[in-house]
Amino acid sequence: MIYAGKNTGILVQGATGSQGKFHINLMNAYAKQVGGTGVVAGMTPGKAGQEVFGVPVYDSVADALDEHEIGASVIFVPAGGCGDAIMEAADSRIPTIVTITEHVPVHDIMRAVAYAGSRGSRVIGPNCPGMLVPDECKLGIIPANLCRKGDVGVISRSGTLTYQVISELTSAGFGQSGIIGIGGDAVIGQTFSEVMDEFHADGRTKTVVLIGEVGGSLEIEGARRALDIGMPIVSYIAGVSAPKEKRMGHAGAIVEGGEGDAASKIERLRALDIPVASRPSEIPELIRSL
């Protein structure tokens, strides 16, 4: 299992907002298609008793857990309440907490991720498209029609760029064992190296595509982890043309104090003998040549 599986009951926090509703519908359409459990409960404070596409809504995470088996939560709560939502899920010891919300204050995330760790919960995101395991489960907003079952794992800080890479992989005949969007913020829950361990422990992944971008150095840490556990990887790093000290869309995508530029990341990856694509379209060829 990679964070969640076919039989994982999913809770959606922020279920009655437009994003929550829209994606509950899509997540359950996918669950139906693959014969999985999907979203079993929604949660929005003050909205108990409502239903969203047949999914019952509760006032609190604890109330939802009284009625349902829940193994993962997907959060669409607005940015200001997002840290709180993560902590509420962690307080109830939900093992996997996928946070889609963008623009969450970094101090909130640091605290929520630390608290989740102390409760044995793992946070994916924030500011991410979530995760999808083909033919098993979808937690978040990754377009399912692009994905095919296979043995290539995808870990990415980005959303649409991930979709681009998935469609390149699928059309080149490489199916995916799991697609995990870890998020574009400076501080995130699960990092490349932790997801690498998850793919490794699951055992169904032969190669991992690591999709990074400017800012920080999590990609290098993740690549080192892959080498340690013997997981073959290829990489693509977006932002070689990004100017310094400018935030490129994602809160975490900024070159600061001479650290985190794409060119030096690519150089460090290549120094570890990791193939790095210069365009997303080169990724399938690099996998073939491994």
Binding site: G159, E213, Y236, G239, M248, A253
Partner: peptide
Amino acid sequence: NGAGLTMATLD
């Protein structure tokens, strides 16, 4: 659309 895809476009 999306920061990563837009950055990749620039690249």
